[in-house]
Nucleic acid binder design. Structure first.
Lengths: 223, 223
DNA sequence: GCCCTAATCGTCAAGCTGACGATTAACGGG
DNA sequence: CCCGTTAATCGTCAGCTTGACGATTAGGGC
């Protein structure tokens, strides 16, 4: 039987919050196939590179961000036989979450790069619509039971900024008072810095850092 | 740059509940590398086969089970450069959950196959210890907020049988009365058949089928 | 000093959870 | 046929969490 040769790529669902909405990073393809169309950033895994290293490398190439400031986790693998017309390609998708980012720069294979609001439902090349949808669902679900929302915030943030993350990602409104009670009561989620800020306007707000908890308990349920 | 050739495999974390504990399916390798050692069942993805089809095919080959009766979902991809000494191999792991299964049969590349209790922490070939651990954690976590526990049960099951799934997978004890109240109250989880059984001893119990809900709400938290 | 904006603190009823008592319905003896 | 055993299922109750929403507080701008 042997083992047919495959190409392996990584693709990235990079999410950030611009001022008012949840956006994903897309690049305009500079090469065939799908030349000129928008797609998720990504590329081939190198000969001696681990999958997660490849994902981090592509992320750095596309965003120019210091690796430490961005949360990244594996999303899923996609390998339908006809997903790439050139050859048999299996892609391992990664989900990356970042605080408000500068305008992206074009990468090696990308003629252009930009943020698209996820609610625009713009069509992407390959099976990237599906991958983006899966990444979104993963992010939305993980906000419920993990401290993942803090990945969208700067290192120091206020409760209101954290709440805005939930509101934008879930596209919903949350009561500020109940939200405050809940997150400040969740063990290990927030670590007070002692300092305050007025950057959100109004009464000065406490600044927090992300705490040590890996799990949000009790969870923040969407119902 | 081009695209270095990879081999792509699927590996399976197949879990079942034997009488008293949670077990995983392992096979003894009949070929190099790691010949003679225990490993997760799996094999190469074929030329024109989707990843999930390959996983289902391997599952059928190893267990001889009708595909419809087994829950299967993608777990993660593993692709460290040195994970297989022969060549560069990326594996896509799948998690399968099945009701109490017959003794497995040896597959093509497997000299032997058997169930090992997961708490035995037996050492497996390649990086399969890690894959098994990830599969276990996925299963344990998904019991909390999904109807996944029903995948360990026969098509018709009692509340007590469902409770035993939680108890064995989480290795914990649950109060029968509170558990009963919770699962019978969860919208869409259970669908009564109207019939009863005494196969668990004691007072006859209602038989249920799995309901239509994809999500368990409110979730069953482990605290 | 006054108004505006948010942050933060309180209150209260409703729902959910954990602990545990009580009742019910079959089974296997004797 | 009565009895003890085994589980299923129903109830009760206090404590906790949640959702809705009022009240207070502290800067910033005028």
């Amino acid at each position: 039987m042997g083992h047919p040769p495959f190409a392996v790529t990584v693709d990235l669902v990079v999410l950030t919050l611009t001022g008012e909405e949840l956006c994903a990073l897309v690049v305009r393809r500079g090469i065939e196939p799908y030349r000129g169309e928008w797609a998720l950033p990504g590329g081939f895994v190198r000969e001696d590179e681990d999958l997660s290293d490849a994902a981090r490398r592509e992320l750095a190439e596309e965003t120019g961000l210091a690796p430490g400031t961005v949360h990244i986790e594996q999303l899923a693998a996609y390998g339908a036989p006809d997903r790439d017309p050139r050859m048999r390609v299996v892609t391992v998708a990664y989900l990356a979450l970042a605080p408000d980012l500068p305008v992206p720069r074009a990468g090696t294979d990308a003629a252009d790069a930009r943020w698209i609001p996820v609610r625009s439902r713009e069509h992407l090349a390959f099976d990237h619509d599906r991958i983006l949808a899966d990444g979104l669902e993963r992010a939305r679900a993980k906000l419920e039971y993990s401290p993942l929302a803090t990945a969208f915030c700067a290192p120091e943030f206020t409760v209101a900024e954290l709440r805005r993350v939930y509101e934008l990602v879930w596209d919903t409104r949350l009561d500020p008072r109940n939200f405050h009670r809940k997150v400040t009561g969740a063990e290990g989620l927030l670590e007070p810095t002692g300092r305050t800020t007025t950057r959100d306007g109004g009464r000065p707000a406490q600044l927090y850092r992300r705490g040590k908890a890996e799990l949000l308990y009790p969870p923040m349920l969407r119902s």
